[in-house]
Design a protein around this nucleic acid. Structure first.
Lengths: 163, 163
DNA sequence: GCAACCTTGTAAGGTGCCTTGACTAGAAGG
DNA sequence: CCTTCTAGTCAAGGCACCTTACAAGGTTGC
């Protein structure tokens, strides 16, 4: 029960720092998004906009990438359908499945959101140093691809096989 | 309504990357914590352990630092009291207030948690480069101190006044 | 073709965490 | 004393997510 063998002074734990920084960044994004024509998009909806591309994606695949259950994603998709951002299209290859696709408005929102993220990142690059922010992105992408490839299949240039 | 003037290809938005990495890191922490003698500590309890120091902290102050309401913190503190990690001590300077203090067990848990975070961070330093991880920490601390000083008063070496 | 089994998506109910609103006890200032 | 402000609690509600259970459609072997 002694207070640890060494208790190395690591400062504030890294996950806490990451959360605080992510929260600040995301708040900047949200405050601009809410004043746009896409103000009815809530933070939860991000898991769909993040992963759905032009050719559509099945519910199960969204759930896997978002690390959530199919039911939760289904609920969120319902909401987005009601708001006119996505639609369910029958999968031509599997009559059970439906492809979640962005509507025209949905594509507009996704594009706007991405440009907004880029804008905020650029602002931070000017604030904290472009090379530092790009270095941060580089490191984070490498870590994300290694630690959670299912969550960011856009990255993950590594093939699983080849012993 | 055109899809953005430039739509610069920024890759995956930074907040998403930060969340994925933070999640992976935190999962590593949790899986070790759950197997320890402090397995009944849940993720939500972190907001208390993060901020309470030896001399105690009032509920209102915890809420401000955690960016949460007094009610939520109160509920979490209730739970931690029931589990024997903290106790409420009357504030000698204000009979309305109570100082939330760690019990002996609470201090043990906090110390163990901190050492666990340090351990995981060290592991990642070996995995991704010690200089890169320490550079990451440095940048995050700078950003956190600038963007959300209320959340990390341990940092924030800047005085607010002095025009 | 059909029987056993897997997968896709949905429905219903529950839990955890957090919020808004209303209140008591004590502090601060006239 | 009387007003006003602050510290903390109580109660009700909501949102996000999960677990359990199930119908419809594919898949494989015979």
């Amino acid at each position: 029960m002694s207070p640890g063998s060494k208790t190395p002074p690591a400062g504030i734990p890294l996950p806490g720092l990451l959360d605080v920084v992510s929260g600040a960044l995301f708040a900047e994004f949200r405050s601009e998004l809410e004043q746009s024509q896409f103000g009815d998009i809530r933070p939860t909806h991000g898991c769909v906009f993040r992963h759905v591309r032009g050719d559509g994606l099945r519910l199960t695949d969204i759930a896997e990438r978002a690390n959530m259950t199919k039911q939760s994603i289904g609920e969120i998709v319902d909401d987005l359908v009601a708001k006119g951002y996505v639609q369910r299209i029958p999968d031509p290859n599997d009559r059970r499945a439906k492809l979640v696709c962005l509507t025209e408005r949905g594509e507009g929102a996704q594009g706007y959101g991405l440009s907004l993220f880029a804008k905020v990142e650029k602002r931070w690059a000017e604030r904290y140093g472009a090379d530092r922010i790009s270095g941060l992105r580089e490191l984070l992408e490498e870590i994300a691809a290694a630690e959670a490839p299912f969550a960011v299949p856009e990255l993950a240039p590594r093939e699983p096989a080849a012993a």
